[in-house]
Design a protein around this nucleic acid. Sequence first.
DNA 1: TTGCATAGTATATAAAGTACACTAAGTAAA
DNA 2: TTTACTTAGTGTACTTTATATACTATGCAA
Lengths: 249, 249
Amino acid sequence: MTISHKIISNISVDCVIFGFDFEKLNVLLVERELVDEKSGRILIKDFTLTGYHIFEDEDLDKAAYRILKDLTGFENIYLEQFTVFGKTDRVSNEKDQIWLTYLNQGFSERILTVGYFSLIDSTKVTLSHNERKIHWFPIDEAHNLEWAFDHKQIFMKALEVLRNKVRTEPIAFELLPERFTLTQLQKLYEAIYGTPIDKRNFRKKIVQMPFIVALKVKQKGVPHKPAQLFLFSREVFEKTKKERLGFLF
Amino acid sequence: MTISHKIISNISVDCVIFGFDFEKLNVLLVERELVDEKSGRILIKDFTLTGYHIFEDEDLDKAAYRILKDLTGFENIYLEQFTVFGKTDRVSNEKDQIWLTYLNQGFSERILTVGYFSLIDSTKVTLSHNERKIHWFPIDEAHNLEWAFDHKQIFMKALEVLRNKVRTEPIAFELLPERFTLTQLQKLYEAIYGTPIDKRNFRKKIVQMPFIVALKVKQKGVPHKPAQLFLFSREVFEKTKKERLGFLF
DNA sequence: TTGCATAGTATATAAAGTACACTAAGTAAA
DNA sequence: TTTACTTAGTGTACTTTATATACTATGCAA
């Protein structure tokens, strides 16, 4: 069943999708290649965030969920709007204009884009490629990429907001499987902040948090001492909200 | 000189303007009255934020600055975009629809609005009324007002963002005159957070902050012991950024 | 049984936050 | 000129939180 939606041409949504591979924090980007049809030569190659216009009858959040579902197949992904980019010269350099011409979108209209960041457990996701090339990039490398439009700016803002938000909200768990080890949690925070954290002090803090609950189960299939598994209990988190001062790390 | 601008009909900007009167934190609202022409009876009376559509050739930030300038006459007001509201049912209740009909804006189109909050030294501002009624409201009372559209939601989000932001960024000073006393600064933080702060502990923290510099001048014209005046030095703030851990209060 | 890899644990010190009450200085009124 | 009033300005003891630091335990594999 396909329903045709009317697109709102001057508003779009772009998603900065973060994933964690137990080592590094990564961002999901789409490779874009403009190939000269005659010579087969690559004219432009760069990377974009995943985004699309919103539909006339569609909430902003819903548009972002739709884009994520199309890309990953999942429905319940953590999503948060973080900023709007609406400068009149957002898409002004030569390269971007060649692209827009190619896509028949013309030059004139200014498109306001709403930035969302999303956190997904990348061990679950198998990317559905279609014809587009989609890759995870470590956030450290992302700075050196050739980006399309103002997407580098959007990405950097997303990273900044993420780094602030994980301090006070328990959103980092969205990047881990439901059951995780404390080492994995520590590596995640190290990856987000980009700095090492002391193991014993980290664990001392953890045991104060009633919402990180130890399971009776241990890791299996690892070639070393298996670690205890934990999970994040949102229920306990909400219950203990008033007692807390609000900070996690 | 008037230049006619082409309006973008589906995008607007709304400003949540905060001011401080040395006692309470206030928000600037516009009173809206729909009067029946025949009977003279007031059909609807409620309050809105100040907002307007953006122009075709205008950056979002610029639109917000324009709205503030029109209202207050000032150009260099602190402004920050904090969120976008783009639900399809933003303006759906009966009252709002009566208004939109009255304004000849019709029912159908969904307007996406970008929320800005702004901080101004309200001792400087004399409101230029025109025909519209504009008032300061203490934020505590604002919850009980009759709000237009989804403006209450926008206001509450702005307040939340402000409360978080003043912890880490030196933006509160925008609400004070250039020269202020420590009691005024303390009262400001108390007004923003809605909780009392211990005077001696507050001042202990202040003296650690090199960017709050004591002037050689004292208050004049007060019927009691005059207080020392201070100012916020952005220069020193920037210089000492690396040494700080990032938190103010 | 030995080596390897990662899990898991405690204590001492420094820094920051909290609770708390009196004296000082200027104005105004008696 | 004395006194009352109002707000400014100050220090210390205690509690809590953050930081720095190194060894033993467990399971698997060779």
